[in-house]
């Protein structure tokens, strides 16, 4: 796959080290599912974790710990490798939806844009967005980091074009207006540290209602 927009090393390191909120873990896992380059970086940071755990200070386990664990093995069924699931949504996203695109329960948020909020821990939020072909997501800015991963179609903002697998990372200072390509509807996974603020799009009360 021809991915042009990747995640930064610090995000991939935070993912490997286990330092991100659940919603960001989800979008990293989804991007890495589609992107070999970032998968290689994550696996390398995992190997740094391996070196750390192998050289860490040991804490003695109790004398019967091994015997207890061996006894537990009898009750354990070996798990075969999970087989990849074909579909538009990468497997980690499918796990939150309970299926592929046809299982998504969309809610309209205006201008033909639809969203589905995914249930994650509340330090950050994740949702799928469906932007109809040719439609612009209104100019918005946000507090904290927002990441947007394209899963279907493409969008264009002031600087660049983002297609399947590409991830856009915007911090709080950026105000931007992504526009979906004219050819087909654009489906994205979007993750934010804090709720989006739209400029003159929806009154604040409505924003609250739709949790955008």
């Amino acid at each position: 796959m021809n991915i042009k927009h990747h995640l930064q090393d610090d995000t991939l390191l935070a993912y490997a080290a286990g330092n991100l909120p659940e919603a960001f873990n989800l979008i990293v896992a989804a991007h890495v599912s589609l992107c070999d380059e970032c998968r290689a970086v994550v696996e390398s940071y995992d190997s740094l974790g391996g070196a750390i755990i192998d050289n860490t200070e040991v804490a003695d386990v109790s004398a019967d710990s091994l015997a207890q664990t061996l006894a537990r093995l009898d009750t354990v069924t070996r798990e075969p490798r999970s087989t990849p699931r074909p579909g538009t949504l990468p497997a980690p996203v499918q796990n939150y939806i309970g299926g592929d695109l046809d299982a998504v329960r969309w809610r309209p948020v205006g201008m033909g844009v639809k969203q589905a909020i995914l249930s994650t821990s509340d330090t950050a939020s994740a949702r799928l967005l469906m932007i109809p072909a040719g439609v612009a997501i209104p100019d918005h800015s946000h507090e904290g980091t927002e990441m947007t991963l394209v899963l279907k179609g493409a969008f264009q903002d002031e600087d660049d074009r983002f297609a399947r697998g590409d991830i856009e990372v915007a911090d709080g200072s950026v105000s931007h207006t992504p526009v979906a390509d004219i050819g087909e509807d654009c489906i994205c996974l979007a993750v934010t540290e804090a709720p989006l603020k739209f400029k003159g799009f929806l009154p604040k009360v409505v924003q609250k209602l739709v949790r955008i």
Binding site: A17, G18, P21, E22, N25, L26, A29, A30, V32, S33, R39, V42, D46, S47, G49, G50, A51, I52, I53, R81, S82, T83, P84, R85, P90, A91, P92, N95, Y96, T120, S121
Partner: peptide, 25 residues
């Protein structure tokens, strides 16, 4: 490394009571 990844996921599950989504196989 493999053990680290299992221990890390267990830590997140235990201390933060969160999922850590994994990339597709």
């Amino acid at each position: 490394t493999w053990i680290f990844t299992i221990a890390r996921n267990r830590r997140i599950d235990m201390l933060r009571r969160q999922n850590r989504p994994e990339p597709e196989e």
